[in-house]
């Protein structure tokens, strides 16, 4: 179990001034710039849970993960991971966790991948039997065989990410931190990685904390999400819940024979709703309506259209988590 209680992190940097003059000025000034990256956050994560941790750039995601993994020390508050304070007992904590940073490999750049695993086996004191068993499993779900003899430096991004994930799992960690594990990957590899994460969670019952910009990751993997914005957690709950709350929006895309009719109809007046609950965009011969399904029914929109012109095709889309998060970022909760 992970406990995060009232944790804040403040970064103090020397103040920088713009321009060449500013650089000279900075040389003689001693002004400090304080930045509260994480502001009094609290949450708990139970064993076996898979949690999505999302937020915009600079919202404090990575800072939180880095505190939970023990890389940086919180300014205030307490973190406990399975009874260990990570930044106090780093090495003990490290034995129990697996970490993948999508942006940067944790592997030794100049070693062949196969040797990397041999060394990790020694470092984490994995016995021969477990090692064989786990390597077989990881090979199955991540398909490492083809590049096992290559140097880490020469791996493609997708291969490297799979290798990193495998390396983080070799010692069967109780907690797995994945910081943007699918960044820059193609769809096939993304799928492989997602499936591997799910299988591992099912098999070993390990906790997974996942940060990502790709919300499909979250939808496929996580039941619970935490949303952080400007250092504060603004949502902690199930995915379904937030979808209910924000998921009233529907998008209807209609291909029309004669697009000009759309402009002639004053929908807002017909349905008596504001632009907030009913809006549309035209792109070529396609019009996309964005409606609040509680205020306007899908069928009413369509029947209004069908009388006026030929409808070639209709597509209705539920809002996905991405749209919701966008709404929250912009408007707040």
């Amino acid at each position: 179990m992970i406990k995060v209680e009232g944790v804040s992190k403040e970064f103090v940097n020397a103040k920088k001034y713009p321009g060449l003059k500013g650089a000279v000025k900075g040389l003689f000034s001693n002004e400090k710039e304080r930045k509260l990256a994480v502001n009094d956050i609290s949450f708990e994560i139970a064993d076996g849970e898979m949690v999505g941790y999302i937020g915009g750039n600079g919202a404090g995601k990575s800072t939180t993960i880095k505190m939970m993994t023990g890389i940086i020390v919180p300014t205030s508050g307490i973190i406990e991971v399975d009874g260990i304070v990570p930044y106090k007992n780093r090495m003990q904590n490290a034995q129990n966790i697996g970490v993948v940073f999508g942006q940067r490999t944790q592997l030794w750049w100049n070693l062949p991948l196969g040797e990397t695993f041999t060394i990790l086996k020694e470092i984490y004191k994995v016995n021969d039997k477990d090692f064989k068993k786990r390597m077989k499993f990881l090979n199955e779900v991540l398909d490492l065989g083809k590049f096992m003899n290559n140097t880490v430096r020469t791996l493609s991004l997708g291969q490297r990410m799979r290798a990193d994930l495998a390396a983080s799992l070799l010692h069967n960690p109780k907690t797995l931190y994945l910081d943007e594990p699918t960044i820059g990957l193609d769809l096939v590899v993304k799928d492989k990685i997602r499936n591997a994460i799910k299988e591992i969670n099912a098999k070993y019952h390990s906790k997974v904390i996942l940060t990502t910009h790709d919300l499909t990751d979250i939808e496929e993997i996580c039941h619970r999400i935490l949303i952080i914005d400007k250092g504060t957690i603004i949502y902690d709950g199930t995915l379904e819940n937030i979808k209910d709350k924000y998921g009233k929006t529907r998008m209807i895309s209609v291909d029309l024979h004669d697009i000009s009719v759309v402009k002639k109809i004053n929908f807002n007046k017909i349905f008596n709703v504001s632009k907030k609950d009913f809006n549309y965009q035209i792109d070529g011969k396609t019009v996309t309506f964005i409606i609040n399904k509680d205020k306007v029914s899908v069928s009413a929109v369509l029947s209004n259209l069908m009388g006026k012109t030929d409808v070639k095709d209709i597509r209705i889309k539920e809002t996905d988590i991405g749209d919701i998060v966008k709404q929250i970022y912009i408007a707040g909760i």
Partner: peptide, 15 residues
């Protein structure tokens, strides 16, 4: 040219 000077001035501790 300017940016090199600026970079050099940026780390005043080591400077």
């Amino acid at each position: 040219g300017k940016s090199v000077i600026k970079d050099s001035l940026a780390y005043k501790g080591s400077f």
